[in-house]
Design a protein around this nucleic acid. Structure first.
Lengths: 197, 197, 197, 197
DNA sequence: AATGAATGAGTGTTCATTCAT
DNA sequence: AATGAATGAACACTCATTCAT
């Protein structure tokens, strides 16, 4: 019951101060390393930067995906939380588009994340579920609003879209940041196309 | 000088018979291995299947991307060649859609190819150019026809679309083969949406 | 200094109740783990099963051999105690044979014990002495009786025999349970052979 | 056909000079390391002493047991070959006893070998068969001769004896070299005991 | 031109032991 | 007295690439 490695990233009661210090150091280090070299970066690079032993990492994050999930938690939360905010400020279609761009921005900074998700490596098995769980509701609400407003078709599958953008947003060698944005716009146009039908 | 490894896959004058035999064996073996284990498969697996030494592979294909390009040459040609065929048989929009699906089918069978393209590994640097060079003209013609026919907007960038579908078509763990098709349809709808504008 | 870890297994005056509880939990857990995975099983496995911290184990059993000795104490006592019982019930030769088989049975269930005894690892240094101290008198008495009865030679060294059977009884990959028994019978025959001389 | 790693220790035609040099260096180094630290010694210790890379070892001896077998080949051969020599020089019983002592001497110098044989580790799976194949015929002949001469019982199982002595001869912390000899003598006496029956 | 032996850095992971809490 | 977090050396093994043969 008190054993939820997935939650290692969150301050909890009952976690010793020294442990929490290690966890924080690891999360900070991992965030930097992931940003620098992608999520496949060697474990040692992270532990070295965090100033902890390898065993400490494995204690708190038995699976690599646990670390990834923990590192991204804040960003995931922030991204998902942006959905209602945007919905309140903009009209449904605009809110949808902006959030998809926001989501793409999240993905774009995660080098190797998409590859990991599709690697078939069982180490990352829990990751799709994690993202699905956090992002799908957010997008689902936006799609519903836009559909109700008659702006887009009503049969759009949120998970389909998340997967698509998750793949589209992987950064290319040439940093053509406009590419992803254009493609998202195109997908949204596709959704609009069916609206009047 | 006069040494163009990128062309190793093509029979050329001046290539000794035994060298050509090695090249053929390597291409055949690599094709099988790529199909089985993806383009990241260990080099040894390929040389073993080809019955040649590792040095022979590196002589003819100094870069891994050279081998990949050579192996896929035929399929790339066939895929590109399908464009005019489809254009002749179907109306512009239908032809476009069908070819994009065809292209997605090509990508989908290349395990690890998309990841390699976006790995940042300089070993694969020449690959995007290779694909661009072969596929872009094919798609460009289809887009032009459809645009001229008023079926889609006229400002679609072929390379944008190729990149997008190249990313979308990576096979997921759950073999949701419909996902890619739905996304392509959505993208095409997006192109149609702007047509009247 | 009043601190005799070797005796940790025995209830003593002056041991705090909570300490005794930890010791008992450790002994119970270790017994199960040893039976399951041998005496080389990871320490964590034992502490986890016992529900105590690693430090607690090291406090009471600074050496791994201390734990082993304590865990086996009851079985060692029982095995040693079987000697007089068998001596009372059977004729000297029969009693000797039966006890050696009994002893072999004890060894056979201790996966990794023999290896540990011969590993050269100083961690196990105290173990031979422990076993010698407990088993040698038992066997010695049986040998003396049999020798006095003229059934076996009189110069048999008990510790020699204990060591021999300790080694013979290590379980092999193929569970040839008869092997040890046959070899013990052969050794006893060897003792008998010299009897008439 | 040309792929028999088990035979890597033997000079063969078709083995390149450099490869043979590596193999020799590895065998020499491994022999020393095994003698010093037992057969469980770290791989790196061997490669370092041999002055070759780790990969070279794995190329020639994919399994640890392959290396052990190769290292011991000469000694195994020599030990097995001693059987007919002893049989020619001594009477059957004496020859048997002397050969068993010889065999025990072989085992005694192999620290960790017995443990490896009984470890259950699949890495060593091929070892028992290797030893059985080489030693059993040698012992079998000696047993037959002695049995025919009426010196020992005729139902002795050679593999049983080999296993027994293989276990008995493992060196203890205290180097009681006499122990093994005494136990072998006792086993032989056991064989003699049943002879008249 | 071809071979394939050699390299050796690099990786994930384990685990006995210590010591701050 | 008890905890369990932290350590970090140690290990087997892989594989792209080079280069002697």
């Amino acid at each position: 019951m008190g054993d939820e490695p997935t939650l290692a990233g969150q301050p909890r009661q009952g976690v010793r101060a020294d442990a929490q210090r290690s966890i924080d150091a690891l999360l900070t280090a991992a965030a930097e390393v992931f940003a620098e070299d992608g999520v496949d970066a060697p474990v040692r690079q992270i532990t070295a930067k965090a100033g902890v032993g390898a065993g400490t990492l494995y204690r708190h994050f038995p699976q690599r995906s646990d670390l990834i999930a923990a590192v991204f938690r804040h960003e995931v939360d922030a991204c998902a939380a942006a959905a209602p905010t945007l919905a309140a400020r903009y009209d449904p279609l605009e809110a949808l588009t902006r959030w998809l761009q926001r989501f793409a921005g999240f993905i774009a900074t995660k080098r190797g994340l998409s590859a990991a998700l599709h690697s078939g490596d069982t180490t990352y098995d829990s990751l799709p579920g994690y993202f699905q769980q956090h992002f799908e509701p957010a997008l689902s609400a936006l799609l519903d609003s836009a559909a109700k407003a008659g702006a887009i078709r009503s049969d759009a599958d949120p998970w389909d879209l998340l997967r698509a953008i998750g793949n589209l947003a992987v950064p290319a060698a040439d940093d053509d940041s406009g590419h992803t944005q254009r493609m998202i716009a195109l997908l949204v146009d596709g959704l609009r196309f069916g609206a009047g039908a």
